[in-house]
Simulated assay, not measured.
Amino acid sequence: MQAHNMWIDVYLQLGVIGVFLMVMTYLAYIWRSWFFAVDRPRWDLRADRPYSPLTLLPTLLGAVLLVQGLAESSPLLLWGWMLVVLLAFKIKQSPHIGEGAAEMRIAIERGELTTQAS
């Protein structure tokens, strides 16, 4: 049913192209999750927000998937793809900086937004 290694399993099922696509997927996920973890949270114009330890979770789960994938292929077959896809799309979502109630209030106070009567 499964190989002893996730990478061997991918190679036997999809060949060299599949292994290349897997490597690129995991590299992109680890790259994105690393910068999600080390960047300050920005959901408004403030740049002095504290770091959150929860932002390390996608990076740590990515490391677990890669290490466990060396020993068995269950990260590929069972829950690994779900976590990679779920976390990759979740950390891709970023709030819009410069939009929202606080920014609108600041823009109104500065006189940048005016209400126009028709």
Rank of each mutant, 00 (worst) to 15 (best):
M1A: 12
M1N: 12
Q2H: 01
H4D: 04
M6H: 05
M6C: 03
I8T: 14
D9I: 01
V10E: 09
Y11R: 08
Q13H: 14
L14F: 14
G15T: 09
G15D: 04
G15M: 08
V19Q: 12
F20P: 02
F20Y: 13
L21H: 11
L21V: 13
V23G: 13
M24F: 15
Y26T: 00
L27I: 12
A28V: 06
A28T: 12
Y29M: 12
Y29C: 07
I30N: 01
W31N: 13
R32K: 15
S33W: 11
F35T: 04
F35D: 02
A37C: 07
A37T: 06
A37K: 06
V38A: 02
V38Q: 04
V38D: 04
D39Q: 15
R40L: 00
R42L: 12
W43D: 11
P50I: 01
Y51K: 15
Y51S: 07
S52L: 05
P53H: 06
P53E: 02
L54G: 13
L54V: 03
L54N: 07
T55M: 09
T55G: 06
T55F: 10
L56N: 01
L57N: 02
L57R: 02
P58D: 04
L60M: 14
L61I: 09
L61Q: 01
A63Y: 10
A63K: 01
V64R: 06
L66N: 02
V67Q: 03
V67N: 00
V67I: 12
L70Y: 14
A71P: 00
A71C: 03
S74G: 11
S74K: 14
P75L: 00
L76N: 02
L77A: 04
L77I: 09
L78Q: 12
L78T: 11
L83M: 15
L83C: 13
L83Q: 08
L83T: 07
V85P: 03
V85H: 08
V85G: 12
L86N: 06
L87K: 09
L87T: 09
A88V: 02
A88M: 13
F89M: 05
I91H: 02
I91E: 01
K92L: 05
S94N: 09
S94W: 04
S94G: 08
P95N: 07
P95R: 13
H96V: 10
H96C: 01
I97V: 14
G98K: 07
E99W: 05
G100D: 08
A101F: 06
E103Q: 09
E103L: 00
R105Q: 09
R105K: 14
A107I: 03
A107S: 05
E109G: 11
R110M: 08
G111A: 10
E112N: 06
E112T: 06
S118W: 14
